[in-house]
């Protein structure tokens, strides 16, 4: 199984290659540079591995939530690349990717992943390690105020992501005494998108390039004429 993965949903930009489970990655914190970095990143991974794009079985991508423009850059790139070789795409949640990274990096089983969504809100999700090496969402992903975030009623948790930078006190208080660690400087990464993408692809989550679509979570972006304030 050969899978290419990219993520441009936050200020991080990354691409990864999974070849029969072995993952290589390019990763940079590079706000606003995704459009110049992402294709060269893929290029260098492919040439390092000595394979071509056409040999890929599928392409996974961070489908959001995250910065609208970043999410769309990733979706656009994945649509173009996947359509060029007529391969399926596997959408992966950026929050789930962060949780997956934390489980591997900090040996955690329960992760509360949050991205600062600006406008006083966070993109939020709770995840548990699943037996197949992936992650399982507990409840639904949401965009909400830090004081409205969903915290599962049992278990000990670790918190990751920029939401924990902006709202650490409110969020920690909501966990009661059940917060073990806190890692605000965690971003979605393509190596985790790749790992989750392989699992998702095996589970039949591959779709056509046209169906590579963003998940914004925040959808009330404009008011119609005549709508009340």
């Amino acid at each position: 199984m050969k899978l290419l993965a990219i993520d441009t949903t936050t200020e991080a930009c990354s691409a990864a290659l999974s070849i029969n489970g072995a993952i290589s990655e390019r990763y940079e914190i590079a706000p606003r540079q995704h459009a110049t970095l992402i294709l060269p990143m893929i290029d260098s991974l492919l040439s390092e591995a000595g394979i071509t794009l056409a040999q890929m079985d599928a392409i996974a991508f961070g489908r959001g939530p995250g910065a609208f423009t970043g999410v769309r850059i990733g979706v656009g790139v994945v649509q173009g690349v996947a359509f060029s070789i007529e391969r399926p795409v596997v959408p992966v949640s950026s929050l789930a990717a962060m949780a997956h990274g934390a489980m591997a990096g900090f040996n955690a089983t329960n992760v509360l992943a949050g991205i600062d969504a600006r406008m006083g809100e966070v993109y939020w999700g709770a995840y548990q390690r699943s037996s197949d090496g992936g992650v399982r969402a507990v409840g639904e992903e949401s965009v909400c105020g830090a004081d409205e975030t969903f915290i599962p009623e049992t278990g000990r948790w670790i918190g990751v992501g920029t939401a924990w930078q902006s709202y650490s006190e409110v969020l920690a208080a909501r966990c009661g005494g059940r917060l073990d660690q806190l890692h605000p400087a965690i971003f979605p990464r393509a190596c985790d998108i790749a790992a989750l993408g392989v699992i998702g692809f095996a589970a039949g989550e591959g779709v056509s390039a046209d169906e590579a679509q963003p998940v914004y979570l925040r959808n009330n972006v404009a008011r119609k004429r005549g709508d009340s304030v």
């Binding site: 459009a35 294709l39 423009t69 769309r72 790139v77 173009g80 690349v81 359509f83 060029s84």
Partner: peptide, 18 residues
């Protein structure tokens, strides 16, 4: 910019893939 980026991302990546 946001609208342009959609066409640019898809167009440029498709050309790259081809």
């Amino acid at each position: 910019v946001g609208a342009l980026l959609v066409g640019a991302a898809i167009g440029r990546s498709l050309a790259w893939g081809w």
